[in-house]
Design a protein around this nucleic acid. Structure first.
Lengths: 255, 255
DNA sequence: TCTGTCCCTTTGTCCGACAAAGTTAGAGCG
DNA sequence: CGCTCTAACTTTGTCGGACAAAGGGACAGA
């Protein structure tokens, strides 16, 4: 006969974790606002009554989570976690889980279509000028696969931004980061890949400007299908995203 | 006349960061596989030639990122980052960025519809039995808003799982975690909310079983619109997700 | 087979220390 | 008076060593 649960598990956490939790709570509850200074390590030593080493371990945890960071003079302050940094954590996780390009493709089809729909509906003039600026730069580097791939990645970030939906922006980012390296490979390997990519971007901007949802969705689909066809010339969609791709993502995160 | 760039920028990072980066690289490159033991702190001290405090700070960084963890005996080993833990970081970020429920709703409409489409297409018998099991539990607690909200959250996780698309699974999770607390409030406030929720789940399972995509999409939309109607009875969609909701997410993360 | 004990290892925490880099206050100068 | 330069002072990153608590393993005894 199993024992009736007399006791709840005791909350026994290491001190550094408690320090991190306490500071996190203050930030997430809004009592410490982004930009507000956290004290110096010595201050925290006094406040929490633990050793500086312990404080420092707690700080590392929060720093990695993006909740606090150090300014130019290395003083601590709360800050808003940055999307790209968080997304690169997710990308890394997807790589480790060995997701396939098919999963990436399918999810992106959904997410990028949703982005363009939002952009068509709500893009501002500023969004449009950012996009046209990106297009101009893309046209200038259409012969350079590495640069073009970078422009392409930025283009889609800008589309998502134009959707004014930050949840969507964040949701699409991890998958997008894993796409990025393959775009370069495809543009390198497929002769008319570059021009087609730029043409698709042009049509997408046009659709956003005309608030033509159908066209936006259509050209997003085509754009992604182009990617897929290009990719299938060099590998199977059912291959898992490989570890080596992460080198790109790692470099991107540090930037 | 500007100087020709004689020197590359030196990579100047604190030692603890270099330790973390070095270990991360080995894991992400696959040379250390999930489950493999990392040495003891003393081993790492010897290998990197730095102080144990420095090693420990590096370890905290990786631990927070979910790349390594400690087993029952607190020994270090590499591990696969867990979706829910990563997603809660994102949820936290979304709260701090003060996203609105409208953004959450719109993104979820896209993501949950995509999930059900995948589930309809690819759900296995095991997925279905998990879902029906969840349904049974939901029916049992239809009068208890807190428990029902928990079941609802799990239901949608199971649907996403049934889509066999881990990218989608991961992408929907942050938004879903922010939904969860409101579901409880809505079911509490709206009399027929509980039964409607359970009925929707029943229809969704049915659609998956019959591989009826139209029905799946339809009922997902209805289910979300129900949430929206319920929510608008207690607050505006344009309100930002508030800090207090995070307490739920925090509790969930620890679990 | 199970249990209690002893020993060794490992982790979590603490203390004190120091160099390097940043900050602040004050002296010196125009 | 306002500006620059220098000399304290502070803070961070790193180091060395220390110790208690908890875990793991081996071993004896019931």
């Amino acid at each position: 006969m199993p024992l009736a649960p007399l006791f709840r598990p005791i909350d026994v956490a290491p001190a550094y974790q408690k320090v991190a939790d306490a500071i996190e709570r203050e930030i997430v509850n809004g009592r410490i606002k982004p930009g507000d200074p956290i004290g110096t390590e010595h201050d925290l030593v006094r406040q929490f009554g633990v050793n500086r080493s312990t404080i420092r371990e707690g700080i590392r945890v929060l720093e990695e989570g993006g909740l606090i960071s150090r300014d130019s003079s290395r003083r601590l302050h709360a800050c808003l976690p940055r999307y790209t940094k968080l997304a690169s954590r997710l990308s890394r996780a997807l790589v480790l889980h060995e997701v396939t390009f098919r999963e990436l493709y399918e999810a992106s089809m959904t997410l990028e279509v949703a982005s363009i729909e939002g952009a068509v509906e709500r893009a501002t003039e500023e969004n449009l000028s950012e996009l046209t600026d990106n297009l101009a730069r893309s046209e200038a580097v259409v012969g350079d696969p590495a640069m073009l791939a970078e422009c392409d990645a930025e283009f889609h970030v800008l589309v998502a931004k134009a959707s004014q939906n930050r949840v969507l922006q964040l949701a699409r980012e991890p998958a997008a980061q894993l796409f990025y390296p393959t775009t370069e490979m495809i543009v390198t390997g497929v002769a008319e890949g570059g021009p087609r990519l730029v043409a698709a971007h042009r049509h997408l901007i046009d659709a956003i400007r005309r608030r033509d949802r159908e066209a936006g969705v259509l050209w997003t689909r085509r754009h992604l299908q182009d990617w897929r066809r290009g990719f299938e010339k060099i590998a199977s969609l059912d291959r898992s995203v490989e570890h080596m791709y992460m080198e790109h993502a790692q470099a991107a995160r540090r930037r």
